[in-house]
């Protein structure tokens, strides 16, 4: 993956608009966060291969970045995004890596199921 370049990611997001696409969205503080820091409340969630359709996508911020996808009846949102990649299958992968390089958040879009 490479550091996010906002104009290029915006273009890549736009390509998925107005069609059925598959979403992987994940947020995590790691399985050991509470173990290493007792005062830390660990929480996370993910959705894999959620099929969505959005009419509008936008990446915002100065880095780490935020992304919002506007659905017919709702939103997809992620913050803390730092890096991106388009795979050879054309999947858009966005990830946020923390100060130790660990994954903290991921937002991925694909024409076919992951």
């Amino acid at each position: 993956m490479q550091p996010i370049r906002i104009e290029e990611v915006q273009k890549a997001l736009n390509r998925f608009a107005n069609q059925d696409v598959y979403l992987h969205l994940e947020t995590t503080n790691g399985a050991y966060a509470s173990h290493h820091n007792e005062g830390f409340f660990a929480a996370g969630a993910y959705i894999r291969n959620g099929r969505i359709r959005f009419s509008r996508a936008k990446i915002a911020g100065n880095g780490p970045y935020r992304v919002g996808l506007k659905l017919d009846l709702g939103w997809v949102y992620a913050e803390g995004l730092t890096d991106w990649e388009v795979t050879d299958k054309g999947q858009l992968l966005l990830a946020g890596h923390d100060y130790e390089g660990k994954l903290a958040v991921a937002l991925q879009l694909s024409d076919e199921p992951f």
């Binding site: 996508a57 915002a60 919002g68 949102y77």
Partner: peptide, 9 residues
């Protein structure tokens, strides 16, 4: 919607 204003048109 909260947390989405910046993404609106």
């Amino acid at each position: 919607r909260d947390k989405t204003v910046e993404f609106e048109d």
